[in-house]
Nucleic acid binder design. Structure first.
Lengths: 294, 294
DNA sequence: AAGTGGTCTAGACCACTTT
DNA sequence: AAGTGGTCTAGACCACTTC
């Protein structure tokens, strides 16, 4: 069932008749018959751009954006789980009482944001981090020669701690909040290449243990997605060049002072909520960070 | 005038009548009345994916992709120059004898690739590197604190040389071909932060002098675009961490061995043709490389 | 054959900019 | 008022997958 407040505002007063000409009147309520036909002013936008403080224009948003927000809600709530098939365009069009073209445009954007994947003839699927193609979306380190492949992990440390001030600030927590700290080394063909430290909100990742991490093969984001219902959507990364300190030098088996690529990355889930801070040091003597600019 | 061979193949035999049911028959030839109505099999794709050697399926491509290719040709040929307004969607639809929706979808993709920019109420404009928003598309180095702004350039060296083997390979030239070599340092607030070396094909950039570079204010890509008719479309970048050698240390006024971000970037113009190799060393003590992953 | 996404059309109206 | 891009609809057919 679609939760309460979901009234679509058609600010484009559709083409062919039947719709009352009064602007702002919903074409028809969504799903569930009884629902107060109040004009929605972009309030159902969980994902979208922050709502400007007060006043400002009524913030009209096109129908397809409202549909997109509704679909996103269903993704976030787990109504359709990662890897699963979502309802067809025609069915969604019927459910939302809009044309298929409008649903299509909504899904087009979701597909562009990698939240869903379309497959002609089969349907539209919820994206998942359990796929070869998703593995390298956030890991851009590739070997100078040979084909990219996923590294092996060795966990150094996993513990619950109180969030230091800088970590808390980046993750939108309060200083001292419980967080899970993970430190690991990753190996390409047996060569230690990445040492990274992760912080995760304790509230969300309660029950995450070293044992669970070790026994799980594959990308951590896959584990997070299936075990903790938290899917990483996008990330923001800051890259620098630094010198290896004693700790990194030992773990990566390199000389003190070797130049390393430093990456500080904050990952976000639905609603632009930060749910991971990751600080990595990359050895780039046989690998490089690959970026496509456009 | 649209050059010869531009016949659209409508492999979707449009909806409402008038079109002969024979598959492969063009809906109607494009522009210029007289043109041999021959079935085109994606031959007019200059930009697109390489045409598979021989045989293989007839390589159908949707109408909007063919329109996109035609528009791209006009952009490349300079029929519409950077910063200029291109014909309206309705006009293009009329010219190509397709519906406005089809032109729209073609332009949508061009806009997504930053080749054109749409402005509601005004029209669609050819993108240009002479814009504030374009300045940071390829330069991702931003200050740790304060607002980003464009650096000042000081040119160290500008000369014609023969392409070394590695440069030639990356730029799709023959070893020994004439190239223009440029070395410069860039300053943020007076602090030397970037030292970079560029190689450009001598054939295209004939007449590029140190004097012209020095007197020109603004991003080099702007100069290349207006003076040499070569517009950079996308780039591929490899990033590493390295130690400052004697030359870099002197130019950046830092200690020998200071860690620097190394970027090797190949930029491409229309038709995925490489037209610039740029090797930069970035001092990241007060700046960082900003990347958004999604 | 039926269902799904993908393409194409034609026409309507909205939001925005300029005349 | 006229022109441009932006949204929305309804219906047709194509390409692909599955039954």
């Amino acid at each position: 069932m679609n939760s309460a407040s979901s009234n679509l505002t058609n600010n484009a007063t559709a083409a062919s008749g039947a719709v009352s000409p009064t602007a702002g009147t919903p074409a028809t309520p969504v799903a569930a018959a009884a629902s107060t036909p109040v004009t929605v002013t972009a309030a159902s936008n969980t994902t979208a751009s922050a709502v400007p403080a007060v006043t400002a224009s009524p913030t009209f948003s096109p129908l397809y954006q409202q549909i997109k927000a509704l679909i996103t809600q269903s993704l976030q709530s787990g109504e359709w789980k990662p890897g699963e098939l979502i309802p067809s365009e025609v069915e969604l069009a019927g459910r939302f009482k809009v044309s298929q073209g409008t649903v299509r445009k909504a899904i087009d954007e979701l597909a562009a944001e990698n939240l869903v994947m379309r497959r002609q003839g089969k349907g539209t699927f919820v994206s998942t981090h359990h796929e070869a193609r998703a593995h390298f979306r956030f890991l851009r380190l590739v070997p100078d020669e040979g084909v990219p492949h996923y590294p092996e992990s060795k966990f150094i440390e996993v513990k619950r701690v109180r969030a230091p001030a800088d970590v808390a600030r980046l993750m939108d927590l309060k200083s001292g909040d419980a967080v899970i700290f993970i430190k690991r080394v990753q190996y390409f063909d047996g060569v230690p290449t990445i040492v990274e430290e992760l912080w995760l909100p304790g509230l969300i990742f309660k029950g995450l243990t070293a044992e669970r991490l070790v026994e799980y093969k594959g990308p951590m984001y896959g584990l997070f997605e299936t075990e903790f219902g938290t899917r990483m959507i996008r990330a923001s990364e800051q890259i620098r060049a630094v010198c290896a300190d004693a700790g990194a030098a030992q773990l990566l088996n390199i000389d003190l002072g070797t130049p390393l690529l430093s990456s500080e990355r904050v990952s976000f889930t639905y609603g632009d909520k930060p749910v991971e801070l990751r600080r990595g040091l990359y050895l780039t003597s046989r690998h490089h960070y690959q970026n496509e600019l456009s």
